[in-house]
Computed example of a mutant assay.
Amino acid sequence: MRLDPRSIDPPGARPNAGDPVLSVRHLNVEFSVPSRRGLLPRKVNVRAVNDLSFDIGRGETLALVGESGCGKSTTGRAILNLIPPSSGTVLFDGRNIAGLEERALRRTRARMQMIFQDPYGSLSPRQTIRSAVREALDVHDIGERAGRSAVVDTLLETCGIRPDLRDRYPHELSGGQRQRVGIARALATGPDLIVADEPTSALDVSIQAQILNLIRRLQRERQISFLFISHNMAVVRNVSARVAVMYLGSIVETGLTHEVLSLPLHPYTKALVSAVRVPDPAVERRRERIVLSGEQPSLMELPSGCPFHSRCWLRKQIPTSNRCADERPVPRTISPGRTVSCHFAEELG
């Protein structure tokens, strides 16, 4: 089965007013990992996130898209300071998160929440659904203690959890119901920003559209900003106003979602877009499908020059493409809000 975009509410336009709620500048995340090369054991530094910069406006959804292992989830966790960045700046509401004292950081954490990919793994098996959501209110001491139960019931109702399910345990719920509970818990602190890490990838296709519609409705009604992490362009098309395409720890293309999907300017983006199936069989038969050769390189052994050049189908069509193997492309502004990191983006435009 495939996700039918007609079953999902359309994304809203990108807000233009005010300063961004989140500004990421030159974010880098490195890990020290064991290396099997050589006779003696040693460790090498692996850069999982490489010089990322982007903004998210108030009430806006920015999608971060790419294959598994490209650094999307690491980026989300670094923004929330769940993983310490190696360098760079994360500004939330104009304040540098790294420079906050403990009390201020605690208050900021309440305004930045996460929806995890695995709803079962993110919920304690020893807590009822009602207790799991209330815990967020208790930890951050939100509202009067006597009124928190009513707040929890309202949140669960907003997210579509029936009253008869609220005293059950996570294993007694379906995957879609557990993800609704995870969303309710993220909402409990009244966040301004939510990082949604592949929130529908573990769900059946029939349930995905329901969860995406819930996220879209909450985004509109509450003006919450979302960083929506996904590997699925079909999902991104219907959820985000803007999209950033990520490959091997770097962003290779950004722009308005409808512009990037209708005219991708990076060969990797074009390959991702070509993999999205459309509901009309006649159109599907006429579409060009780009199949990438080889596997995504290891972060421990990054290729020289452009990170994508070893799999790039466009490079094979350009006689002067040796430049791709020798020179790393820098992000270029093609039009307002549209950037691409490719030496030959004009060939696709």
Rank of each mutant, 00 (worst) to 15 (best):
I215S: 03
R277H: 13
S230Q: 01
C312H: 10
N213R: 03
P319M: 07
L203R: 10
C324S: 09
D326F: 10
R286S: 14
A209P: 07
E301R: 14
P297C: 09
R222A: 11
A234S: 15
C324R: 08
L299P: 04
A275N: 07
T320P: 00
E284M: 11
S304W: 05
A275M: 11
E288C: 01
G249F: 05
R286D: 13
M300C: 09
L265E: 12
H309V: 06
L256C: 02
E253F: 03
V252H: 08
V239S: 00
P199I: 03
R220P: 06
S304T: 15
L218D: 09
L214D: 04
V236T: 03
R242C: 05
R277D: 14
E284W: 12
L227A: 02
T254Q: 11
A271K: 13
L302M: 15
R328D: 06
R216P: 00
R237A: 14
K270E: 15
H231K: 10
P303A: 05
P191N: 06
G294A: 09
N213G: 08
I290S: 10
F228M: 08
D192Q: 15
S321C: 06
R222C: 03
I211F: 08
P264E: 07
L265D: 00
N213F: 00
Q208H: 11
P303V: 01
I224D: 03
L203S: 10
T257N: 00
A241F: 01
L214Q: 02
R323V: 15
H309R: 11
I207T: 13
A202Q: 11
L212R: 04
P191T: 08
I251H: 03
H266P: 10
H266N: 12
M233F: 11
S274Q: 03
N238S: 15
A275K: 11
N232I: 03
L227K: 00
P319T: 04
L214I: 05
R286L: 14
R217S: 11
V252N: 08
F226H: 05
I229H: 00
N238L: 01
R242E: 04
E288D: 14
G255N: 02
P297Y: 12
E295A: 14
G294Y: 09
